[in-house]
């Protein structure tokens, strides 16, 4: 088992990463897709507005990028803090 201070630092770095990624997750789905849609109404796309696109497709694409980015970032952190398998 890794020593206590390095695993604490690793956990803190993980929490920071999660916070940042969840902000993106929230803004691109609940934000652009629902709450902020009126603000995006001016940007037209294919007969409707950008908010509709985010609600039906854009958010899903962002989720995909987030999941792979998180996996890559954590693999890096695992090595950096010496807690990899």
């Amino acid at each position: 088992m890794a020593d206590k201070s390095s695993s604490n630092a690793y956990w803190a770095a993980n929490i920071r990463t999660i916070m940042i990624y969840l902000v993106v997750w929230f803004v691109c789905s609940f934000g652009f897709g629902i709450l902020l849609r009126p603000m995006l109404a001016g940007i037209k796309i294919g007969g409707t507005d950008l908010g509709f696109w985010f609600a039906q497709q854009g958010s899903i694409l962002v989720f995909l990028v987030l999941n792979f980015a998180y996996a890559a970032r954590m693999n890096k952190l695992d090595r950096q803090y010496g807690v990899e398998e």
């Binding site: 897709g33 609600a55 039906q56 497709q57 958010s59 899903i60 989720f63």
Partner: peptide, 10 residues
């Protein structure tokens, strides 16, 4: 449905 059933995977 679209956002909910995919966003859960994040």
């Amino acid at each position: 449905y679209l956002m909910g059933w995919t966003g859960g995977y994040v």
